[in-house]
């Protein structure tokens, strides 16, 4: 990395020398592939929601969230260059640990609060209306 002549050999030789210590800078092809995939994965959910393509709201939500997960993976691979070799695998290990905790935080919050709302807090306008009507 410190030798200017080394850069003349191109990104491939550079990556081979220092892959374990430095994240690779990627390649033009990689960035363009990532950009194309990300653009497609962004346009589809916008199209689904703005043009009301699918009648079922539930199905649209699941597809939009699924495409978001795929796009996050695309960003991880093509833009952040996350792989099992960078920093001797510590990047990947920290990432997996983070994902586990994020899933627990998000999943448990939604799960607990949904049940809390459903069982203990009858404050929605529909309920109040129903209560007054009966």
């Amino acid at each position: 990395m410190s030798h200017p002549s080394e850069s003349a050999h191109g990104a491939a030789a550079h990556a081979d020398d220092h892959d374990s210590a430095h994240p690779s800078h990627g390649s033009l092809r990689g960035y363009l592939t990532g950009f194309t995939l990300a653009a497609i994965l962004t346009i589809i959910p916008f199209w689904l929601v703005m043009d009301h393509v699918i009648a079922s709201t539930q199905a649209t939500i699941i597809i939009v969230l699924g495409l978001a997960v795929v796009q996050i993976v695309v960003h991880m691979i093509y833009f952040l260059h996350l792989d099992t070799r960078s920093e001797n695998g510590w990047n990947m290990l920290a990432f997996i640990f983070t994902i586990v905790l994020v899933v627990i935080v998000l999943g448990a919050s939604i799960w607990v609060m949904y049940n809390e709302n459903a069982n203990m807090m009858p404050m929605s306008p529909q309920y109040m209306h129903h209560k007054q009507g009966s």
Binding site: F46, T60, I61, L65
Partner: peptide, 24 residues
Amino acid sequence: MFWHFLDLVWVGVFSYVYLVGVLR
């Protein structure tokens, strides 16, 4: 890394907060 990470978080924001927010 910071720059790409913020773009990654934005994927979650526009998908979940905006698009799913409009639907539900």
